[in-house]
Design a binder for these strands. Structure first.
Lengths: 188, 188
DNA sequence: TATAATGGCTAATATGATTAGCTTTTAGAA
DNA sequence: TTCTAAAAGCTAATCATATTAGCCATTATA
């Protein structure tokens, strides 16, 4: 029986696809192994178990998002850059819903690796807010404001929890406008 | 062996306490049963299994929150009422973290009972925003803005995903101020 | 007081994570 | 090219937990 060229990265990629398809919380090693045409114990040659895999998926998500943000924000500044940042989140939540779920769902590990992954987003976001006339502390708060909104709104949307029939992208855009308008409050 | 006066409500209360203590996702029927001094199969006399219990816990959370909001908002209006609403969320997330976590777990349950539970919050929130001069559609969008922010910010905070050391309540208050300031943008 | 419902129990089953230990492939050195 | 060791897979076994089945004691009520 010949081998596939599997490694840790490949396992995470498969897991990410599986998460997008069936939902992050429904992932099992059994299912993942079936998808990969191997047996579940073989996964342990690449990863440290289900918990660890979920952590990896979270980190994968943060890195992916960081790239998408940089990509979209490139060449923009001010309010436009903020909107681009928000749209990057929107796209991730829409196109990679399982990976997006991993980013907020994983709460057991607060280690150095996870911290570095989120730090990337923090730095990029922070930089985008640098055009506004804010103190470093205000800027840090504002990063949290946006991150909280983006994570929460998009999670609620992804899970069909906005039960009325109003268009979600319109709500999203309006919300972003409200937030951007609110930034002026900090400049007093 | 005499019996305790256990029923469905009691099981949910115990489960809520356990969730607050060890985290929603760490709940097991085994642990819960131990806490209640019964064996895990006995739980099935009151609930339909772990998944169903988690749904009950989510509904419990929404009802609890609704009560807390009404309580805090009572007698307030305008921006003060909005702040009170936000603080009710904050308190729930802080003091009943396990229950709060249950509320973000609704994604697997989109049934009539769950819908009614969230509808309560929607109505209260909507009413609070009625003092602003907004169209019904704008109001509906704004409810989503706040709900998204509150759910997301507090989830990230509860999951320790805000890695820098800045005070979380300060970030929260500033965020709420930014949002409230942003509402003015809609009145043009 | 007799009886039915209730709430608890133990034993058994199912699923999935994880571990142990074996075998084959593969990479790299001699 | 051949040998060797690591790597990547496998099967079998173990463990933990959820869940089901069916039994028995308590409790409430007719």
């Amino acid at each position: 029986m010949p081998r596939q060229g599997l490694d840790k990265e490949a396992v995470i990629e498969y897991a990410a696809m599986l998460a997008d398809e069936i939902g992050f919380s429904n992932i099992t090693l059994k299912l993942l192994a079936e998808r990969m045409n191997i047996k579940s114990p073989s996964l342990y040659k690449h990863i440290d178990g289900l918990d660890s895999l979920k952590k990896e998926l979270m980190i994968y998500g943060y890195k992916l998002l960081e790239g998408m943000i940089i990509d979209k924000v490139m060449g923009k500044s001010g309010d436009d850059a903020v909107r681009a940042l928000c749209n990057a989140y929107y796209e991730l939540a829409t196109n990679r819903s399982g990976v997006f779920q991993a980013m907020e769902n994983y709460r057991r590990f607060v280690d150095e690796e996870s911290k570095q992954a989120t730090d990337g987003i923090f730095k990029v976001t922070s930089k985008i807010f640098s055009v506004y006339d804010l103190s470093p502390v205000q800027k840090a708060h504002l990063v949290r404001t946006f991150r909280g909104f983006l994570q929460g709104f998009l999670t609620l949307a992804a899970n069909h929890l906005f039960t009325d029939s109003i268009d979600i992208k319109e709500s999203f855009d309006l919300s972003v406008d409200v937030l951007i308008a609110g930034i002026a409050y900090l400049n007093k």
